[in-house]
Nucleic acid binder design. Structure first.
Length: 301
DNA sequence: CCCCAGGCACCTC
DNA sequence: GAGGTGCATGGG
């Protein structure tokens, strides 16, 4: 067992673990108290866990934020992985300066200071967002937990047994009925067929070689992936910070705050909102707006 | 009973 | 390419 502490004072910008992991970007971590996505408890001292693979070995990573630092425990040296997956080196000040000077954008950045985009493993993100279609955040997370327990590999950690996220091969071997039994509904065949594609050599990470809009188009070859899900994979896994996924919440936000960006189809509306939100880091701003307006009781005009 | 959730595949035209 | 329809499940 290894452990470490990463002083928050060494980061370029503030950091907030809970909003980063519970803002609907990633469904690949779970809280030690089991109270995922139930809100409250802001202020830290919750351990979050996930798994990773190093040289075909499965490892658990546990992380907890205190007032002064990010503490971690793991089978491996987790610091570089945390730095990467939680984008600890992002300069939020610069990102915020590139965002538009709107009341609603200011309020969102102010409400969740320190929230980062995540950068999660491509296949796991791909499956997570196939499951996300017409589904609530808490249930998407529950589905990923169910997939781990049904098809992942057991990993011992701190005297408990956890499960790795299933590999493409492990998921491809699941039957459609087994996936339906986990309440995946009509997404079950999408997950199975996509897992088969990845197992057989089509790598979602290959999208990285392409410019943004071509990368989005490339990802739609996977079954169950349309433009919106493709944008989520680009934004939350492949480092395309300009990607702006247009889901039901963002469409409400467009109606209310950016009606001039509505262009009647996904591609053009996305392009207009991307420009409106500052271009290069538009997806960062979008993620703040999404999280803020989904929880705000009394949003400003 | 209704409506909705980080939509997509498939079908017309 | 634009526009409809069916699709699973659970919560409010």
């Amino acid at each position: 067992m290894q452990s470490g502490q990463l002083p928050l004072s060494e980061l370029a910008s503030p950091f907030d673990l809970q909003s980063t992991l519970e803002s609907g970007q990633s469904y690949l971590w779970w809280r030690a108290d089991g109270n995922d996505y139930e809100g409250g408890l802001y202020g830290g001292n919750n351990w979050y866990r996930t798994t990773t693979e190093v040289d075909d070995e499965h490892a658990v990573i546990a992380v907890c934020q205190t007032d002064e630092c990010l503490k971690w425990r793991s089978h491996i040296d987790a610091e570089p992985i945390l730095r990467d997956r939680l984008r600890l080196d992002d300069d939020l000040t610069a990102i915020r300066q590139g965002a538009p000077d709107d009341r609603i954008v200011e309020a969102a950045f102010e409400a969740y200071q320190g929230m980062r985009l995540v950068q999660e493993p491509p296949f796991q993100t791909l499956v997570s967002f196939i499951c996300s279609a017409q589904m609530r955040v808490a249930r998407i997370h529950g589905m990923q937990q169910a997939l781990r327990e049904a098809f992942g590999t057991p990993v011992e950690f701190d005297g408990e047994t956890f499960f790795s996220y299933p590999t493409p091969g492990q998921l491809a071997e699941a039957t459609e009925q087994e996936l339906r039994d986990l309440s995946l509904g009509y997404r079950a065949p999408y997950v199975k067929r996509t897992a088969e594609m990845v197992r057989d050599g089509t790598d979602p990470a290959d999208a990285r070689e392409r410019p943004y809009e071509q990368a989005r188009e490339h990802l739609t070859q996977f079954v169950g992936v349309g433009q919106k899900v493709a944008d989520c994979i680009l934004l939350f896994s492949l480092g395309y910070t300009e990607a702006v996924p247009l889901d039901t919440w963002i469409r409400k936000i467009i109606d209310r705050y950016f009606p001039d960006c509505e262009r009647g189809n996904y591609e053009e509306t996305s392009r207009a909102l991307r420009a409106r939100l500052g271009g290069e880091y538009a997806g960062y701003t979008q993620t703040y707006l999404f999280h803020y307006l989904r929880h705000a009781e009394d949003p400003p005009e």
